[in-house]
Structures are given as C-alpha cells and as structure tokens.
C-alpha cells in the first residue's frame, strides 16, 4: 500500500542530508510567517514550486492539492471577512483584509507545499536518522518511525474492517446524526482491539531483537555532511536572519490593517 509521499528520485534535493533539509523547512516556515504582506510567502511559494520541479515532486503535490487549496482558500476567506481595513472593497471585505487574507493563505500553502517537497525527497528512515542526529532521544525516534512503518498496515486493516462490516449490512451514510455517529462503533472497535491485541506480540518481538539490550546502540545509517549540505545550512541561516530582519524592522506590514 502506497501511502507515503516519497517520490523515488536522485535529484540534488534527494541527495541532500536530511538535517540541513529539515533546517530549510524550519527556515522556510519562519520566513514565511514573518511579514503580513503576501509578497514574501508568494516569493517563497515560487521557490518551493521551483524546488518541486527540480526534485520531480509533482506527484506528491498533486496528491495533497485539494487539501492544500482548501486550507489556503479557507484562511484567505476567513481573514478577508474577519479582519478590518480602511479601504472598503465589497461588503465587509477591504483591500487590506483581502491582502492580509491572501498573505496568510500563501503562507500556509508555501509552508505545507515546502514540507511536502521535503517528504517527497526524504525517506522515512532518513527523517528518523536526521532527527536522532539532531538530538531527539532514541525511544522517541523509535516510536515515531515504527508508528510510521505501521501506518500502512493499519490503513489496510481499516479498509478491510469497513468492507467486512458493510458486507454485514452496515450503512454509515443513512440515519440521523447521532445514529450515523453510532454506526462508527463497529468500525472503531475492531481496529483498536486488533491493535491492542498485537501489543504483546510486538513487545515480545522487540525483546527478542534485543531492544534496549545495551545502554548504547549503534546506527547503521551514517549521515555525512558535504559542501552542498553546509551550503544548505547557510541558506537556512539566511532565511532565519531574514525572519529576524523583517520582524525587527516591521517591514511588510499592511498599513491600515486591523485584525
């Protein structure tokens, strides 16, 4: 079952060490939310889309486009209606509120698309290895990556359960609200009970593979920073500097906006 966003490839972004890549995502997020004006996130979205082109990450972006546009659109509309400005445009919408709404929408789209490009070019194990090397305690990283490994298994189990209960006449579409809610019980209980049942089996297998056997464990995946990786760190640092600069100078504020 193919549930992950990773897209096979060998682009420069695929080859980048996961640590600087994570820093780039963090830098992107900071820089994107720094200013009110849509200019900065707009430019960043352009960069992200260029990166997607380089990395061949379009399949991943295509998969999330609905949700991406909904989030961006929702934020834009919400602020356009709820924020206040000085130049009326249409009803409660003002030039300033619309501009601000566009800004927030672009911020969300740029950052989420950025993280999707990151996930499209970073394997799960690289992500976990990167987090460990950045100081995440191993048990947390283990919980994270093993859960990630089990997600497709449970998605598959969930799909089977839905089919099994439908075959017994369950119809979640009909009935009033409370009835429909209650109809989810036959779906939730088996998936949860099945997972709980497997807890002892997982724990026994873990024990049998020496989990926690030694105070120090070694790591098979080795990460090495090359010149390109350091360059990426520098770019991330610049993004963070940009964030500070924008915040300190108050650049990019929308005059007359009031939210």
């Amino acid at each position: 079952m193919d549930v992950y966003l990773y897209v096979e490839g060998n682009s420069p972004l695929h080859r980048l060490d996961p640590r600087p890549k994570m820093l780039l995502v963090v830098g992107l997020i900071f820089l994107a939310v720094a200013a009110e004006h849509p200019l900065v996130p707009g430019a960043l979205l352009g960069l992200v889309l260029a990166a997607a082109q380089v990395a061949g990450a379009w399949p991943a972006l295509r998969r999330v486009r609905t949700i991406l546009l909904t989030i961006g659109g929702f934020s834009t509309v919400a602020w356009a209606l709820l924020a206040r400005g000085t130049t009326p445009l249409l009803g409660p919408v003002t030039v300033e509120s619309l501009l601000y709404g566009l800004g927030t929408g672009l911020k969300l789209v740029a950052t989420i698309a950025g993280s999707v490009v990151f996930l499209a070019t970073t394997k799960n194990e690289e992500l976990a290895a990167g987090l460990i090397r950045l100081g995440l305690p191993y048990p947390v990283a283990f919980a994270f990556s093993t859960a990630l490994r089990l997600v497709p298994t449970f998605v598959g189990t969930g799909a089977t359960i839905i089919q099994a209960q439908k075959s017994r006449g369950l119809d979640v579409e009909s009935g009033h609200l409370l009835e429909r809610m209650r109809k989810h019980i036959p779906l939730v209980v088996p998936i949860f009970a099945g997972a709980i049942r497997s807890a002892n089996r997982l724990a026994m297998a873990l024990e049998s593979k020496g989990f926690g056997a030694r105070p120090r464990r070694t790591y098979y995946l080795e990460l090495r920073m090359g010149p390109g990786d350091w360059a990426a760190v520098a770019v991330a640092a610049l993004m963070f500097l940009g964030f500070l600069l924008i915040r300190l100078t108050g650049w990019g504020e929308i005059p007359g906006l009031h939210r």
């Binding site: 194990e125 990556s145 490994r149 298994t153 497997s198 026994m204 049998s208």
Partner: peptide, 14 residues
C-alpha cells in the same frame, strides 16, 4: 526467535 505474525515483528521503514 521468529513469530507467526509477520506484521508485528517488523519495526523499520525499509
């Protein structure tokens, strides 16, 4: 030790 249920003895992403 190898168990019957292969799903619950695999922990890694590759």
């Amino acid at each position: 030790l190898v168990f019957q249920d292969f799903e619950s003895q695999l922990f890694s992403t590759n």
